[in-house]
């Protein structure tokens, strides 16, 4: 095929009238080798956060999950039931409102709300600002509740010790297969709303099968933020992460 006009005849003339001048010497360009992670700035900030937390003997847990999976409800119960046993402070992330911060404040724990506006995830810079504002007491926990989203938060290190995914039986058993990156990025899955199991169609074995395919080593704890079922195992998991 002719490279100029795409016709099937090879080797014919292409007359090109020059009615204007166009210089052909190209401006000199040079190649700059970079070879760095595109999220290097976020990762550096996350490392800074990790050091800041470690210097205060604080452990941060990044709570991720769909909107409505029960992240805030699980957190409220955790804060109430661990009252007097460990220091805990909270960073709440949502696109808008401080409704979650108000719920946490009602438990008596310190909280800072981040409103991301149009942002679909928290990043390490936002968390740095929130940590400095929160000024949490040394020796304890900082829970960071991420924006409800099973996609975007997977990519952004905040400086946490572990990511904990709160999934719920009402979402269906195939979510690990549909959102593999998020389920692969976490160390713990809290399967929430197990009090609703008699009322919804949810195949536990299928859920665990899908989950093991994307994250064979993840720890799974079945809980109900509403009734408190299974929460003791979650608290043991939190204690183990601190020590």
């Amino acid at each position: 095929m002719c490279d100029h006009c795409g016709c099937s005849t090879e080797g014919h003339e292409h007359v090109h009238e020059h009615t204007h001048e166009h210089p052909h010497e190209h401006e000199t360009s040079r190649t700059v080798r970079i070879e760095q992670d595109i999220l290097a700035r976020n990762n550096r900030q996350a490392e800074w956060n990790r050091g800041w937390l470690a210097s205060r003997r604080l452990v941060a847990l990044n709570l991720v999950g769909s909107p409505g999976s029960g992240k805030t409800t699980v957190l409220e119960r955790t804060l109430k039931e661990l009252d007097g046993q460990m220091n805990a402070a909270v960073i709440e992330g949502d696109q808008a409102t401080d409704r979650d911060a108000a719920r946490i404040r009602a438990t008596g724990r310190p909280v800072v709300q981040i409103a991301t506006g149009t942002g679909c995830h928290l990043d390490a810079r936002m968390v740095k600002g929130a940590l400095e504002k929160l000024d949490p007491q040394p020796d304890g926990l900082v829970f960071v509740e991420n924006v409800g989203n099973l996609v975007c938060p997977a990519l952004f290190d905040l400086g946490e010790q572990a990511k904990v995914l709160i999934a719920s039986v009402t979402e269906g058993e195939d979510k690990p297969a549909k959102y593999p990156h998020m389920f692969a990025a976490v160390q713990v899955v809290l399967l929430n709303k197990i009090d609703l199991l008699p009322h919804v169609s949810f195949e536990m074995d299928a859920f665990l099968g899908f989950l093991r395919q994307v994250n064979p080593r993840v720890r799974v704890i079945a809980v109900s933020g509403a009734t408190g079922a299974g929460m003791l195992e979650w608290y043991e998991c939190i204690r183990a992460s601190i020590h």
Binding site: E27, T28, S29, R30, T31, V32, R33, I34, E35, Q36, D37, I38, L39, L155
Partner: peptide, 10 residues
């Protein structure tokens, strides 16, 4: 990978 490898600048 998610890396910026190189630039051509002028």
């Amino acid at each position: 990978e998610l890396r910026l490898m190189e630039l051509e600048v002028y």
